[in-house]
Structures are given as C-alpha cells and as structure tokens.
Amino acid sequence: MQLDPRAKMLPVCLMTSLAIIRNSTFELFVILILALSLAFLVRASLAKVFFKLRHLLSTFLGIFIVQLIFNRSGEALLTAGNRVIVTDSGLENGLGFVLRMMIILLCGTVLATSSSQDTVNSLVQLKLPYTLAFMVITAISFIPLMGREVSHTLVSLQLRGINLKKIPARQKVRAFTYLFFPVIMQTLDKAQELSIALDLRGFRSGFKRTSRIKLRLRYTDWLVMALSVLLFIMALWV
C-alpha cells in the first residue's frame, strides 16, 4: 500500500519511543510485531535489506551472546555443575537489545520506502525549513555513497598487490588508515562539489521555493496515524 511519508513517520516515531521507554521482553516483542506489520503494509523489501545487513545481524548475535554469558545478575537459568552459565536477566538484556535493534532496522526500512523527494516535501509541509529538510535527506544519501567508496577502495588496495588477509596483526591499524583516508577524502570531495553545484544553481537565492507536488493525506493515511496514536496511548496506559 502507498502511504504518505507523514503517515509512516508518525508510527515510526511512536514505536521507537516506546521501544526505548519499555523494557520487558514481551512488550518489545509486541512492538516488533507491529513494526513488522507496518513494513509489510508498505511493502518494504525486507529480504533485500536484511541480506545487505547480514554482517550487522551477526554483530547483533555476538552482542546477544556476550550479554548472555557475562551478565551475572538475576537467577540462574542454566548451570553446569555449580557454575552459572545463563541468568534470567542476562537473557532478558540480550533479547531486549536484539529486539530494539530489529525495531530500529524495520523502522528505517519503512521510511526508506518513500522517495527522498517525497520525504523532503512532507517535512516541508510539516513546516520544517526547506534547507533543513534538504540537509537531512542529503546526509542520509551519503551513507550508501560511503559504503560504495569503501568497497572500491578495498578493491584498489588489493590491485596494488596487497593481500589483505596476510597483513600482520601489528600493521592492521595502519592498513585501516590507508582504507579510510581515501574514503573520507572522496566523500568530502563529493560534498564540496555538491555544495558548489548547489550555489551555481542558485540554491537559496532568496525566492520562496514552491513545489508542483502537494502531498495529500488520504483516508488510509489518517487511519494508520489514528491507529498508531491509539495503540501508543493504550501502551502508555498498561
């Protein structure tokens, strides 16, 4: 279903706030289900996103395991002989972390289903200054750009005959500087080019900006927003 960007932002804000306020595993799980339904509703390409972020997901798993093993408070759930391996609060903290991260990821994918043009327009219609809205969107679009730069740079480094797997441990930190120096320089270059190009095209030259497209909230948008406010209030109540 096509939803107005504003109809996505409201539930996303409410869900992420709830995910921070609430602690219990059950509540977080319910929020996750809600986020998942929203993602399905707007037809976010979940499989694609999660495939791209598979390394991040394994990091989550790592943090989960660390929480599980090193959190010593609470009551023992699993013991080996007289050594405690997993405690209930360790499990709860670990699950809480993973659930929260999943909620944030899902909310991100939901927002990403609107084009950046639509998102800028909707922010402007919410009375945010255009310059600010434009800046937010530009900043976000720089993240994938940096990702691409990183993979290009990794390839070019190997073309210099460097076997990245065989770099001695002592030199690993230095290797990172040769990776990030060009990435940061290229990104700064792009940012500077962009700002010059914007100036040359008369960005913010004093005229009030108008837009051909006026976003209208349809009744499904209202429905989604009303429903999310209702659920939010109910969640605060219980």
């Binding site: 290009h152 070019s156 210099r160 005959g161 770099i167 030199q171 040769y178």
Partner: peptide, 21 residues
C-alpha cells in the same frame, strides 16, 4: 584519484611493502 591512498608521495610507493613488512 581512485588509486591514491597515502598522505605523501614517497609513502604512496612504499606503503604496500611496509604494510606487508
């Protein structure tokens, strides 16, 4: 520009070797 990594000219030639010792 896609192939420059170091912050000095001389290091640009030497760094693959220093990295791999």
């Amino acid at each position: 520009r896609q192939q420059l990594f170091a912050d000095t000219i001389i290091d640009e030639l030497l760094f693959p070797f220093t990295l791999q010792q």
